[in-house]
Amino acid sequence: MDDFACIMVAKILGIDGMIVIAAAQMAREKNQARKDVGEDLRKKMGRPRPGRAGGGGDADGESKC
């Protein structure tokens, strides 16, 4: 899903569009080192991991964006 679609999803859900964009980019990332940096940032910000309650993912832990 592109950034515009993520923003539209966020608008419907009533949440910050950057949260959805960041989750989508993290889900698309192939490089594990970059994923680890994103995960560290997510933890510092106190955001749920995609796939967890309130995280916007599905049961397999994958972001729907």
Score class of each variant (00 low, 15 high):
D40P: 14
G14Q: 14
G55H: 02
G46D: 06
C6S: 14
L13H: 13
R52K: 13
G56Q: 07
V37A: 00
N31C: 01
G51N: 11
K35H: 02
D3F: 07
G38M: 04
A10L: 11
A33C: 06
Q32P: 09
E29I: 01
D2T: 12
G46R: 06
D36P: 02
L41E: 07
C6A: 11
S63I: 03
G55W: 07
M18G: 12
M45I: 15
E39H: 01
E62N: 12
S63A: 04
V20R: 03
G61L: 12
L41P: 05
G56C: 04
A27H: 02
M26C: 05
A33S: 06
D16M: 10
R52P: 05
A59F: 10
K44T: 01
Q32Y: 07
D58M: 11
D3I: 00
M18Y: 04
D60K: 07
A59Q: 13
L41H: 05
G57C: 06
Q25I: 01
K35N: 00
D40F: 15
S63R: 02
G56H: 11
R52L: 05
G17I: 12
A23W: 08
M18N: 13
P48V: 01
K43S: 07
K43F: 08
A33R: 02
D40C: 14
S63G: 07
K30H: 02
G55Q: 02
R28S: 03
A59Y: 13
K35M: 00
G54Y: 11
I15T: 13
D60L: 13
K11N: 08
A59E: 12
K11P: 07
G38A: 02
D58I: 08
M26H: 13
Q25G: 04
E62F: 12
A24V: 03
E62V: 09
D3Y: 05
G17L: 09
M8P: 04
K30T: 00
R28V: 05
A24L: 02
C6W: 10
E29Q: 01
K64V: 04
D58N: 15
R49A: 08
R42F: 10
P48Y: 04
F4Q: 15
M8N: 13
A53D: 08
K44A: 05
L41A: 07
G38N: 06
E29N: 03
M18I: 15
A59P: 09
M1P: 06
G38Y: 03
A23S: 12
P50Q: 04
R42A: 07
V9R: 15
R34Y: 00
R49D: 00
D58C: 10
A59I: 14
A10K: 14
E39C: 01
F4W: 09
G56I: 01
I12M: 03
R47Y: 08
A53G: 11
G55V: 03
A59R: 15
D2N: 15
R49C: 03
E29T: 04
A5H: 12
R47A: 06
D36R: 14
R47I: 09
Q32D: 06
N31R: 01
I7A: 10
D40Y: 14
M18Q: 09
